[in-house]
Design a protein around this nucleic acid. Structure first.
Length: 569
RNA sequence: UGGGAUGUAGCCAAGUCGGUAAGGCACAGGACUUUGACUCCUGCAUUUCGCUGGUUCGAGUCCAGCCAUCCCAGCCA
């Protein structure tokens, strides 16, 4: 079926039609000033393998990747795995899978953990220069000594140990002689700095924990602020793109780069991370959703994770398009979820095969249609793309239509089926409603209609106009299926601002329909296949679907001006 | 009461050397329609670019002051 589209890289490399952004402007300046050569641009995407990638990561990833491509530069994937207590191989594998799914390749794959020896040497160098010291203060004491936002900190009593003593102590930290928390290595900068990050930040801590890659080689691990600039310098990253909260860290980033002498000078540039309405993006909250069973897992179709979006039916192309449309800037912003929906609709409208599915069936008997007759109609697979050809759809005396497509007492402007009204069954016949059958409780159980044999195919020789066109499924040929309708997980546009997530969970974020009727062509569907259920929306075969138990997820509904009209009335 | 950053339509976001407010989403009309979809037209900042002053023939763009919002006190990243 429809393959997930991957961009043609030849159109990305050096493309000059990319909309400009402030990052490109800064890089252009760097090239003009000679700080970097125009052929040496290198960027990196540095995820920590401590969770699944979400659409916010996709934005950052695309910015890193497209920036490198724009300058015909190189792009590295680098695991920022400096905290073994939070990281795992499972997360690392999911990250690569998601990046590949997006259709993004990397020129090199690196691990921060592979640089631990170099980082250790850098720390030693700092100590020799008198720029780092081993501090014996406890975590609580360090916090107290750090001061507050408005008052300067005070210097640690261990701040002026000699380089020799520091070297000895640091080596013994590495050797595992001291318990966790007993000592740290700190950069010696300025305890009175108005920037908290410069108040002698901790750069190494003792953690007697096995690292998922480095094993038990280390019992001291570098902190982000020390490790990251070294990682970038080692890889000759020219532009280290990250999110806004690191702006305050830039002076420290530069301090490390300048004092560690690795011969390259990466430049950190910060941009605003993505916020999407009706969704949370913090790993902490996402993990909480999973752990508290508010969703079924990281790949729950309501999750903003790439695995969740994939299972929901979003395509790589739609996510690329979305990320390109939202732009790159430094303004904290909240992007409307409707834009993401627009992007998938646009992609799937062009590529998804159309198929008829009745979600809430209402049986119709066509009284004047021959009892034993079956006709197979040719129906176009995608009217937007005739090259996709046609399929055969069976028709007989008993069919199902959507309950919403019939009303006993229609409101104004309703042009679907109602008593006495004639509608078109897509590609089949015109039918007119003659009789309603109800059960003892007054519920409509069945409709009796008549058809016009002259209208075969969906138009009549007399050219009379029939406004309504309904989708339908032959009752004798229908496949049974479960269809899952998804909506926003949260009831409020900015769930990230609410502490108690349980109180804002949308009770209707998942509606499971178990008695859906599908046209038989869906019998060989495979997980991940995309369709447009005619007149309803875009759906994707769930990964748990089997030929014996078909399951579909609604990616997004079609735009529906009728329901808007109803709300107005 | 410290430091860093940001403020252009409901939501994103362009706006080079100051020259008279791109585009997209959403929304509202209309055309077309065997998807009330798609597509196509039209409208959507003319006392207006957070506010107030200033410089200038002319300011979203320069200057000053103010206001609002976000981030920072993990041995997380």
């Amino acid at each position: 079926m429809s393959e997930d589209k991957i961009r043609d890289e030849s159109k990305i490399n050096g493309k000059d039609n990319t909309p400009s952004n402030f990052i490109y402007d800064l890089i252009d300046e760097d090239i003009r000033s000679g700080r970097v050569s125009k052929d040496d641009i290198i960027t990196r995407f540095p995820p920590e393998p401590n969770g699944y990638l979400h659409i916010g990561h996709a934005k950052a990833l695309l910015i890193d990747y497209l920036t490198a491509k724009k300058y015909n530069g190189r792009f590295n994937l680098r695991y920022d795995d400096t905290n073994p207590v939070k990281e795992s191989i499972e997360y690392a594998e999911s990250i690569q899978e998601d990046i590949r799914w997006l259709g993004i390749g990397w020129d090199a794959l690196y691990y921060a953990s592979d640089y631990f020896d170099i980082m250790y040497e850098c720390a030693v160098k700092l100590i020799r220069k008198g720029l780092a010291y081993v501090c014996d203060l406890s975590a609580d004491e360090i916090r107290e000594y750090r001061g507050t936002l408005t008052t300067p900190g005070k210097e640690s009593p261990y701040r002026n140990r000699s380089p020799e003593e520091n070297l000895d102590l640091f080596e013994r930290m590495k050797a595992g002689e001291f318990p966790e928390g007993s000592r740290v290595l700190r950069a010696k900068i300025d305890m009175a700095s108005p920037n908290m990050n410069m108040r002698d930040p901790v750069i190494y801590r003792i953690m007697k924990v096995e690292h998922y890659r480095a094993g038990n080689k280390w019992c001291i691990y570098p902190m982000y602020d020390f490790a990251h600039p070294i990682e970038d310098a080692i890889e000759n990253i020219t532009h280290s793109l990250c999110s806004l909260e690191y702006e305050d860290h830039r002076p420290l980033y530069d301090w490390v780069v300048d004092n560690v002498d690795l011969g390259s000078k990466p430049r950190q540039i910060e941009f605003a991370r993505l916020n999407l309405s009706y969704t949370v993006m913090s790993k902490r909250k996402l993990l909480q959703l999973v752990n508290n069973d508010l969703v079924t897992g990281w790949d729950d179709p309501r999750m903003p994770t790439l695995s969740g979006l994939r299972r929901r039916g979003f395509t790589p192309a739609s996510i690329w398009d979305f990320c390109e449309r939202i732009g790159v800037a430094k303004t904290n912003s909240m992007v409307d979820y409707a834009l993401l929906e627009h992007c998938v609709r646009e992609d799937l409208n062009a590529s998804a095969p159309r198929v008829m599915a009745v979600l809430r069936p209402l049986k119709i008997v066509i009284d004047n249609y021959p009892e034993d007759q079956v006709e197979w109609f040719d129906v176009e697979i995608n009217p937007e793309n005739p090259d996709m050809g046609t399929r055969k759809v069976p028709f007989c005396r008993e069919i199902y239509i959507e309950q919403d497509d019939f009303m006993e007492v229609p409101p104004r402007k309703y042009f679907r089926l109602y008593p006495g009204n004639e509608v078109r069954l897509k590609n089949a016949y015109y039918i007119t409603c003659k009789e309603i059958v109800k059960d003892a409780d007054g519920n409509i159980t069945e409709l009796h209609c008549t058809y016009d044999p002259e209208s075969r195919g969906g138009s009549s020789p007399d050219g009379r106009r029939v406004k309504g066109t309904l989708h339908w499924v032959s009752a004798r040929h229908a496949l049974d299926a479960e269809v899952r309708l998804y909506d926003h997980l949260f009831t409020v546009p900015d769930p990230g601002a609410v502490d108690d997530m349980d109180s804002i969970i949308n009770p209707d974020s998942l509606i499971v329909l178990k008695n859906c009727k599908l046209e038989p062509n869906l019998s060989d569907t495979k997980p991940g296949d995309h369709y447009q259920f005619f007149r309803l929306g875009y759906f994707c075969t769930d990964r748990d679907s089997t030929p014996g138990k078909l399951i579909f997820n609604r990616t997004v509904g079609l735009k529906d001006s009728w329901s808007k009209e109803m709300k107005k009335q």
